[in-house]
Each structure stands twice: as C-alpha cells, then as structure tokens.
Design a protein around this nucleic acid. Structure first.
Length: 606
DNA sequence: CTCAAACTCA
C-alpha cells in the first residue's frame, strides 16, 4: 500500500509581538475548518507570545466561523480582557450556530459585566430574538437600543423589523419601519418589511407596500429579495393579475433568468393561482434545477392531479443526481393521493428510508392515512394512524381526515372512534363537530346530526363560513353561500343566468336545485352555509355565475374556495362547462379542478 | 483585514 502524497509542509511562521496580528490574520483568513484554526492557536501558544485583545478576538471569531462554539467559549472565558467585540463575536457565533438562547444569555452576562453594547451587538441580539420568535425579549433589546440611542440605525431597525415579524407582531414591525427616516431605509429594510408581510400571510399589505415604493419615485430599486417576497405575497392571496405584473417587473429588471429564488416563487405563485401551464414554463427555464425548484413543480403537479408528471419529474431529478428531500417525497405522495394511486403512494412511504435515506415524518403518515381513507380502505387507515407516532396539530389533521373519510364511506362505527380522537383536541372543535354531524347525516341518522348541530349552536361554536372568490380586473369579489349581493348591480343578472343554466342542466338529466333554500342541506355539504337549517346556493356557484357574466368569452374562469368543493357543485361545474363551452379552474382547499367540456381533470377522484 | 439586517418548496 502506498501512502498518499503529503503536501509539502509550510515553514512554520515565526511569531513576534510586532508582526503577530498580520500573520495571525493571514493564517485565519481562509481557515473555516476547526483543524487549521486549532493548529494556529496551538502554534501561538507554543511560541509563547503574549496574546493581545485583538488577536484573541480574531481567534475567537475564527472558532465561531467554523461553529466550534465550545472552543470559542473556552477561549472567551480564558481571556483576561473582553471588549464589546469579544462579547458580540460570541453572541453572533451562538446565533449563527442556531443557539439563540445562549446568545441572549451572553447579552445578559455582558450587561452584568458593565460593557456597553454597540450597534452591532444590538442588531445581533435582535436577530437572536428573531430566531427565538420571542417578542418579549425582542422588546427588551428594542428598549436597550433606544437607551443607547441607536434604535434608528439602519441595521438595528431592520433587524428589529425582522424580529417583530418573526414573532408575529406585524404592527410593531411596521411601527419600527415607519419610525425610520426615509433615507435610512435601504433595500434591506424594504425587503425585510415586505418579507414580514409575506410571511405573516398579509399578502395584500405586501403588495400595497411594494406599490408605495414603486410610486414614491425615491427609495431603492427592487432587488431579488423584494421581488421574491412580493411574488410569494401574490401567491398567498391568490392575486394572479398582480402576480403577472410583478412577473413583468421581474423580467424588466433583469431578474428573469439566473435567479432561481424568484423563479421558484413564480412557479409557486402560478400554481396557486390556477395556472399550472405557466408554472411549468417558468420551471423549464431554470437551468440545473436543484431540489427546491424540483420540489415546487412536483408539488404544483400534485395539486392538479398530474401524477404521471410528478413521478416523471422525480425520476428525472434522481437521474440528474439531485437528491429528493422530505418535502419532495411528500409532494409525490400527494400526487398519488390526488389521483387514487394508493399503492404507489404507500410504496413511497415504506421505501423512502431505504431508497432515499429519508425517515417518514408525521406529515408523510398523515398523507398516507388520508390517501387510504379516501380510497375507502378504512381499516388500513386506522391501523396506520395508530401505528404512526403523530402528535399535536398533525394528529388533529390526521384524525380529521379519517373522520371525513368515515363520513364519505358511511362507516359510523369508525366515525365515532375518530370523532373521539378529534374531540380530545381543544382547538378547531367546530371542524370536527361539523364532520361528525355530516357523518351522522350520511348514515341517515338525521336526528343525531341535528343534535350535534343544535349543541353547537347552543355552545356558540361557529365554523369558518365557506366562501369563494373570483378576481376580475385586479379586484377580488368574495361570495358567501346564499348571498349574491357581492355581484352588486349585477346580482339580478347572476340569479337569472343561474335559473337559465339550471333549466338547461335539467334537460341533461340534472336532478338537484341550484338556487332555492334546502332544509338540512348544511348537514350534507362541506360546511358551506350560514344558519344550519336554510342554505341557499353555494358560494362557488355564485362566483361562477358572476364570472360567466364579466369574464370575456374564451378566457378561463378561475374560482377560489376556502373549503373543499362538494360533490353537487362539482357535478354542476362539469355540466355547465359543457353547456357554455368554457373552461373553469376551481381552487379547492387542497387542490385544483380543471373543468372542460363537461368533465374534470380530477376524474371525479379527490 | 476581529462582531450586524432581508428571500423560495407541503
């Protein structure tokens, strides 16, 4: 056996007190690995030179850069003097290695030792609180910044904006942002504020703020951070027309190619807005897609029921040497689930560990249980649900989907069991109870169904009202079940059109009613409707009627809904698409339906 | 030539 070639050892630098710092910096500069930092450290000790505060700080920073926090800590506590840079370096090291709790302790110890924080200390501290999502601690840092007179500093303010946002205190973020003088706000500050809105599901506020920046004339040019936040804001509030405008801005500003982050945001935006084709076009322009672009397009394909496509994309990425992660596989499983490929989906669950080295998470089990449940394989679903170690919010989701499956497949025996598990959760009682009463109603036990319903009313439990919306020329119109007034002056026309359509549908054998109130229908739908006893026309039908009036012929009508579509409405949309010869896309709670010539892309499985 | 802020996938 031959020894591998050893690099020629470099001559050990000779240390002297006068040249110490330049030599040290030279050695530490490129050193991001612990071994070389430790070697330099050892040489220093061996040379026996007296370390200065600055040299120790350099060494400390080097240990922090390679994440060797215990070494950094030992060095720090062995130092004779510590200045604000020493303290801040240690804090920043802890924050960067994902230990914000320790960073905050360092801040406390620093205060105790009487060293005054500077702007760098305070921005680091704010960022530690951001990671902790702790607005209480963050507010203390904010107060210290005020006392130190640096709360208006650009970087400190920006870190505070981010911190409040991560803790969910959006108004405080905005207050800090507004407190900054206009010239102090740079591109990062704007980006941080936009991201706060985008991350807190306040897409419209993000869009509004971006518009303010664009119309103000002053202020920084939009960069890729701002643009990706605004695109994802458009996605979260499903504003296709504005999303397209921002896409235009992205292209004009030269971020169209070679910016994968924006491209991924666009893929996601188009898929959430009902335009899978556009998602695909944006994806196809990404060179050498990594796991994240692949995941986003697989998730998009899954939402539209394009299971073959999702599987092909998975194969393609593996062939190209791109490793799928847990989210990718969840996306693939969702695709199987939405198309009823239950056994393929289960294979992924059982082989992901051995084939891809990824351990199944609660979300994978939840998806599999949901998949089995909707296919009517309820015993298997229950078995898997009990076997999976799922807790908290995921467990609620899991048992809720089982409950819903029991109702669909009229398995009252199991429904009671699942209903019990759901009721163990304090939150979202309403959803579970609605499902429970629906299960009774499906099994023909209207008395029990009504009992659950009336107990809900007595206890004052309200559920989310079902609503649907449609965007026309930039403006979203929101419809609630039985309430046509959103159509404004055209409300009567909508009702007339629906009557006419109902007549034509009857000629094709439709037996139901579109418009008039139906008693106890609320027990059979997915929770649409207000009072529980009198339910009028469902919200998506109203949105469709309005869309047929105002969206130019030839254009796809896109309706968004906050709950799952019911079977009745699904049939209705299919029939109407054939009658009026137009295409509709409906975004459900968890997927898209593309109606065309009397049928739906989901093949009636969802 | 040591310490600081913003982004994408279910």
């Amino acid at each position: 056996m031959t020894q591998p070639l050893q690099p020629v050892p470099m001559a050990a630098p000779s240390f002297s007190t006068t040249t110490l710092t330049p030599v040290l910096i030279h050695l530490l500069r490129g050193a991001s690995d612990l071994a070389s930092v430790a070697a330099t450290h050892a040489k220093l000790l061996k040379a026996g030179v007296a370390s200065t505060l600055a040299s120790s700080n350099h060494l400390l920073a080097a240990y922090c850069r390679c994440g060797a926090m215990s070494r950094a800590r030992d060095l720090f506590y062995g130092m004779q003097d510590r200045d604000v840079i020493s303290w801040t370096t240690l804090m920043s090291g802890y924050t960067a290695s994902g230990r914000p709790r320790e960073a905050v302790s360092v801040l406390r110890a620093m205060e105790f030792s009487g060293v005054q924080p500077n702007v760098v200390t305070l921005s680091t501290a704010a960022s530690a609180c951001a990671r902790l999502a702790d607005a209480g601690l963050g507010k203390q840092v904010h107060a210290r910044a005020e006392v130190a007179g640096c709360a208006r500093d650009t970087i400190v303010s920006t870190a505070l904006v981010d911190m409040y946002g991560k803790a969910g205190h959006v108004d405080d973020s905005r207050a800090v942002f507004d407190g900054m003088a206009a010239p102090t706000r740079n591109a990062v500050s704007w980006g941080a504020m936009l991201a706060v809105y985008a991350q807190n599901a306040l897409g419209n506020e993000a869009i509004q703020l971006f518009a303010e920046l664009r119309t103000s004339g002053s202020g920084p040019a939009p960069n890729h951070f701002m643009l990706s936040s605004v695109v994802s804001a458009c996605a979260s509030v499903v504003r296709l027309s504005i999303g397209k405008c921002v896409h235009g801005a992205v292209l004009r500003l030269g971020h169209g190619s070679n910016d994968t982050v924006i491209a991924v945001a666009l893929v996601d935006m188009y898929s959430k807005c009902g335009c899978y084709e556009y998602s695909r076009k944006v994806f196809d322009r990404i060179e050498q897609p990594s796991v994240i672009p692949y995941t986003s397009i697989i998730v998009a394909a899954a939402k539209y029921g394009h299971v073959r496509c999702a599987l092909a994309l998975l194969g393609e990425m593996v062939d190209r040497g791109v490793q799928p992660n847990d989210v990718t596989l969840l996306g693939v499983m969702h695709a199987c689930s939405h198309s009823g490929l239950v056994d393929t989906g289960l294979q992924f669950l059982h082989s992901m560990q051995s084939k891809y080295g990824i351990a199944p998470c609660p979300s994978h089990y939840t998806c599999a249980v949901d998949m089995l449940g909707r296919a009517g394989r309820l015993e298997e679903a229950f078995g898997l649900a009990k076997e999976a170690q799922v807790e908290g919010n995921e467990a609620l989701l899991l048992w809720n989907s089982l409950l819903s499956a029991c109702r669909t497949h009229k398995r009252l025996d199991l429904a009671t069991l699942a209903g019990q598990r759901v009721s163990e959760f304090k939150q979202d009682v309403a959803g579970g109870l609605v499902l429970m009463s629906n299960a009774y109603a499906s099994a023909g036990q209207t008395d029990n169904a009504a009992a659950v319903w009336s107990s809900m009313r007595q206890r004052g439990i309200q559920k989310d009202p079902g609503c649907s919306w449609i965007e026309v020329k930039d403006i979203p119109y929101v419809f609630y079940a039985g309430v046509v007034s959103c159509a404004g002056a055209r409300a009567d026309e909508v009702l007339m059109l629906l009557d006419e359509l109902e007549y034509k549908m009857r000629e094709k054998g439709y037996k139901g009613r579109l418009g008039s109130a139906r008693v106890f229908d609320a027990l059979e739908d997915d929770g649409d409707g207000g009072k529980g006893v009198m339910v009028g026309v469902h919200s998506e039908i109203l949105a469709l009627g309005f869309g047929l009036l105002v969206v130019p012929k030839g254009m796809t009508i896109r309706v968004m809904k906050n709950l799952r579509m019911c079977c009745d409405c699904h049939e209705t949309f299919k029939l109407i698409s054939g009658i009026v010869e137009r295409e509709f896309v409906v975004r459900d709670l968890n997927r898209f339906h593309h109606f065309k010539m009397g049928s739906c892309s989901c093949n009636d499985y969802w």
